[in-house]
Structure formats: C-alpha cells, structure tokens
Design a protein around this nucleic acid. Structure first.
Lengths: 344, 344
DNA sequence: CTTCTGTGTTTAATCGATTAACTGCCGCGC
DNA sequence: GCGCGGCAGTTAATCGATTAAACACAGAAG
C-alpha cells in the first residue's frame, strides 16, 4: 500500500517537507512561488503520495472522525436511515464515522466510549433506536450529541421526533375525514419510551379541539407487533356496535398490520368500513400492504443529519431543550370517510 | 478531555515512559519488578491515564480500525445484521469499525476508499447489500474482504449466501409436503444479481430429483416487491385449473406478501389452498403476516462475522473461491399439504 | 557600501506513544 | 581480584506529519 512519505515528495521536488506540507494543505500557498507549487504537486502526483492521517492527527489533535455509539443497529430497519443521514453530512465535511453497536449493554457501552475516546474522535453521537429519556452514561465527552433520545439531566444537544405533534397530525387526518369515534391502539405503558405518551397527548388534543369527548374504551394497548395490534383491535370490535370505532390510530405500522388482519377476519374492508393510520412509515410494511397504509413518518434521516451537523460544529444547538423534529404525514389509501350508517 | 500523557504517569510513578509503556502494554512485564509495576498501575489509575491511540498507531503502524464500505446501509433492513456481525467480532478483538456508505456511487466509493486508506485502516471490507458479482474497485488494499458479493476477477476472500442451496431447501420443503405443481415467482432478469439464477437452479434441481417435469409456465417474474409478487401470482392463477400451482416459491418475502394478497383476493386460504415459501426472513414481514411465512433466511449476521474474522486475520480464507454460507430454512405456517382434488 | 525589507524556503521542535540498544549494579565463579 | 551474566530499568530514535521561528538572498533606501 501507500508507503510514500511526504519526505519522498520533498526529495523528488527538491524542496523541504515544510514546503510540501504548505503547498499540499493550501496553507501559506501565498508564501510559496507558483513554480515551486507546481513542482511539488507534480512530484506528489508522480509518486502517488497520499498523506498519512494518523501522523497528521497526532500533530493537529484532530482526527476528523466522529464516534457513533448506538444501542442496536441490528434489530431495527430505522437504523440505516439515521446512519445514512449522519454519514452523508460527515462525508460532505471530510469526516469519517466510527460506528459501535452496544447491544444495549452497559458494559459494552462503557467500553465503546473508552475506545472511541482513546481513538480521539473529534466528537461523539449517542444514538438510541427508540425515542427515550436516558441517563447520560459516564465518560461521554462534552461534545456529544444525543440522537433519538434525550438525557434526563439536560445539558446536551439532543434531537428527537416531535411525537406529540405526530399524534396531532395523525388524529387530525382522521377527524378531517369525518370520523368521530377514533380509537388509539397504543404501546404498553413504559415511562422510558416517551413516544407512546406524547402521541396520546396529541390524540387527546385533537379530540378536544374537535369537540369530541374521549371514550376511554377506545384507548387500548398491546405489544408493539402485528399480534399485539390484532389483539388490541379485536378488543375494540368486541365493544357494542354503537361504541365501536370507525377509525383507528395505531402506535406503529406493525400494530396497524395486525389491525388489518383483525379487520379482514371480521369481513371489514379498509378504508370503506374502517380507516387506519399508522406510525413509522416502515417501507416494508406501509408501502406494501394492501391497501397501502397512511402513516406518520419518523424523520430518521433528518435527525441523523442534524446530529452530525451539530457534532461537527456546523450548526448551532440548544443544550437546554431537545430539538423536536417534524414527523410528516404520508398519505396512502387506508383512510376514507366513515361508513354511512346502515340503510343510508 | 483526557489530557493526561504517558509522561505524566511516568513522573507520578517516578520511572521513565519506557517503563510505563512496558508495564501497561504487558510486553516485557517480566523485565519489570512487581513493585514497580504496581506503582505504575496505581499512578496511571490515580491520574486517569488513557493511552492515545493515535500516537500508538503512528508508531506501531496498526490502527486497530477496519474500514467497511457498503453501497447502501439506508435502504435495506439487512444491513444491520451484517454490521452487527462485523461489529461484534471487531469488538471482541479490540478493533473498531469505520463505516462508509457510498450510495452505490462510483465517485463516492473512490473517495471512501481513499479516505480509509489515508486513515490507515488495518483492513477493509467491501460489502454490498445484494449478492452480486462486482468489479473490484481500484485502490482497494490487498487485505480487503468481499461481503455479500464476489469480485468477477477472483483473487480476494469473499463470502456470499449459498443461494443455489437455498433454492434447493425451499423447493424440497414443498416437495416434501406433497406438492408436484410448484411455481417459482422470480425476480426480473439481471445478470449482476446472481441470487435469482442460483435459486432457480436449486429449484430445478429438486424438481429433477423428485421426477417432476418443470412447467415453464410456472416460472414467472415480477419486480421484487409486493406489487410485483401479486401481479406474478395473478398470472399463475390465470392458468387453466389443471396447470395451476398448489405451491409457490417466492424470490423474496416481499413478493410472498404480494402472493398472499393475490391469494386472499381469490378467496384462497394459506396454507390450506396454497402453500408459500419466501426468502430473506425479513422480520417485519415473515414473522408478522398472517399466517406467518415459512421462508429461507439469509445468513447476514454470520457473513458479517466471517468477513470481519478474515479481515482481522483470525480466520483463514480461500482467495480463489468465495465461501458459500448456508441459508437455513425457517418453518412457520405457510406450508401444508396440497389441497385434495375437489370431492375428496 | 551598509542597512533594511520583503520574499521564498528551510530548520527544528512537536504531537504521544513504542522499542532496540544501552547502562549500572550485583552476585558468582575461578 | 577480575570478568561475566543477568536483572531492572533508562536513553534515545522513530513513526509522518504540522508549523513557529529562523534564515538566505535580492532589491531598495540611506
């Protein structure tokens, strides 16, 4: 591999390494004569010189590497979009990202933070795959950015999805279609995962603004997969006919998938007999089930970008309050007007 | 952050930096007296010393970082499992992975390879998200491992899924259940993506061994999503009754999802009226659709591990032939015996 | 003919470790 | 009493860049 050193270029061009360094880095290029500059550049190109970043980093105390520690890159299809956002920004600024997956294990997390600190990454991003409130792990450098989570203590830049607003948009979509009996198929209660609570707040807010009295029976919970969504939906169907919902807002797309199944088993057609809105915009589900699902998208790519921009210092941030990133509505075909009462 | 240098430890312990280095690295710990060793360790702990990997790398010419360049981490839910495998092995050997996503863009790929080379990563992994034959990009260091792709020219270690064998297992599952009219819902023809051809070979091989004459009408193609799978399946349903398949092997789970839709629209029940086998074991689909899908899993985690092990030199590899990694059968509920002819 | 002022380039220190080669000392054998 | 070997560490070179400070030379000013 590239065994060519700067001194080789210097010899080839008949100058000192200082000159080579100045020419190639652009610094003080006004102090070096054009002829010399050309000679240096030619020599460098001729012998195929590529700078050794390790040596440069040692001297400049900057590695141009950003550490990204995440709990689980493996088990969620979201991870990629966050990484992609961070990666794109890093690349555009000539930086590299060093990724560590900690499997949500405290010991591994500590080890990862140490390794990255030892490697002298310029900054760090601490990412979690589900919007949470976390305790900032010890040893994090001051220039750490929290991604899709926020530190309980505050004091760090952080970005999370605006889940309350997402709940608003989703519910409003249903209200706008004419629904009045709107259920919320929620995740199990968990105080660390704040998305569930926030989306519920948004849901209630819209009901209030539409003058709809919330029916507690329409707020059901289940584990956050298709099975849980199906079971929760079946609970709703068990209600007396006049209390049954004409529309369901599901905590996520997987639960929505379960709601589809429950509906079909009952002979209900979507969106004719039942409207459904999901959350997450999981490509594999939302775009592919039948009919395609109207859902609220999580801004993972944008959050990844934002976090990296702050980490690189090219964007200002507020250390006291996390940035709430907008969750856009993705309209597909699972929402329609409520069925007209029998015998229309 | 850690501004503590080795010389600070040396002063605190009243020895030279050479001694500190030897004690802390373990090398030549037989040359240093136990008392001195203890003194050094205490001093290091007391002032919170952490070695500077950049300086060490410069001296030792090893960075303990492995570069991983991949085409798309963003758009596939598989990526995570490959990364996780590679990451786990790297961690267990005290290495870090530097990830670059190139968006399948040649210019970005070149730039990434340069950046990683400049950063003096110890080895590189060149990953693609779909099993392919690729031209090895210029500039790749000699110790590069190909992951989920193999270089057309050969000469590098590479690992890919054993797609032919996957086709065999899938088809055999259907034959074993008693099916004789088995369709293959294939991806569009594409010579670079070799999975399609290989799985088809496996499919034909099993038909042959079972003494079934392949019916060309049962080999249909479509784009590799639910829509494509549904359209292709509907083609099959359009066949005269006696030529229609009782079982379908789908190129991937998304197409299988489309096959489900087509079946339900026709009033067919799975697996009673139609058996289906998918490929990929996409968690979000396979485990969650109704009924859960029997499918062939892609060994992404294992491939990621293997590639990293070879990159770190802890595993031997053959540079002439890619390793074919086994694709295990995941049995769920979408396969049953063929329906007995009407009026059983 | 000095002294001064800019240019253009070089010298050398530095970043923080690793490690080959060396030193000083003690004990032992003859 | 002298030399030799082994122990316990130290000295100093090295990795490959960056960069402040020094320097050499030419032309202008006095």
């Amino acid at each position: 591999m590239a065994r060519v050193r700067m001194s080789d270029v210097a010899v080839a061009a008949g100058v000192s390494t200082a000159t080579v360094s100045m020419v190639l880095s652009g610094a003080g290029s006004d102090r070096i004569s054009p002829q010399t500059q050309a000679r240096v550049r030619e020599a460098a190109a001729a012998i195929g010189y590529a700078p050794n970043s390790v040596a440069r980093s040692l001297r400049t105390q900057r590695t141009r590497m950003i550490g990204l520690v995440s709990d689980t890159i493996a088990t969620t299809p979201f991870a990629g979009r966050m990484l992609a956002g961070a990666n794109d920004v890093a690349r555009d600024h000539g930086n590299l990202v060093v990724l560590v997956n900690t499997d949500d294990d405290a010991a591994q997390e500590r080890q990862a933070i140490q390794a990255l600190t030892g490697q002298r990454v310029d900054a760090m991003i601490y990412a979690r795959m589900w919007h949470r409130v976390v305790d900032a792990p010890a040893g994090l450098p001051a220039d750490t950015v929290f991604l899709d989570c926020r530190p309980a203590q505050g004091g760090w830049p952080a970005v999370v999805p605006d889940d309350r607003r997402g709940g608003v948009v989703a519910t409003r979509e249903l209200v706008a279609a004419g629904h009045r009996r709107i259920a919320y198929v929620d995740a199990p209660r968990d105080d660390e995962v704040v998305a569930s609570r926030l989306r519920h707040e948004g849901y209630l807010e819209v009901l209030a603004e539409a003058g709809i009295t919330p029916d507690p029976a329409l707020h059901v919970r289940g584990i956050t997969d298709a099975g849980g969504g199906r079971a929760a939906t079946e609970e709703l169907f068990a209600l007396p006919a006049e209390r049954r919902p004409t529309a369901i807002f599901c905590f996520n797309d997987r639960m929505a998938m379960g709601a589809y199944t429950a509906a079909y088993r009952r002979g209900l057609r979507i969106p004719d007999d039942l409207s459904i809105v999901g959350y997450d915009d999981q490509q594999l589900i939302a775009a592919e089930i039948d009919p395609p699902l109207t859902t609220v998208a999580l801004p993972h790519y944008e959050m990844g970008r934002w976090a990296m921009e702050v980490a690189l210092g090219v964007r200002e941030s507020d250390r006291d309050a996390p940035l709430l990133m907008d969750c856009p509505m993705i309209r597909r075909d699972s929402v329609g007007p409520p069925p007209t009462p029998a015998g229309n």
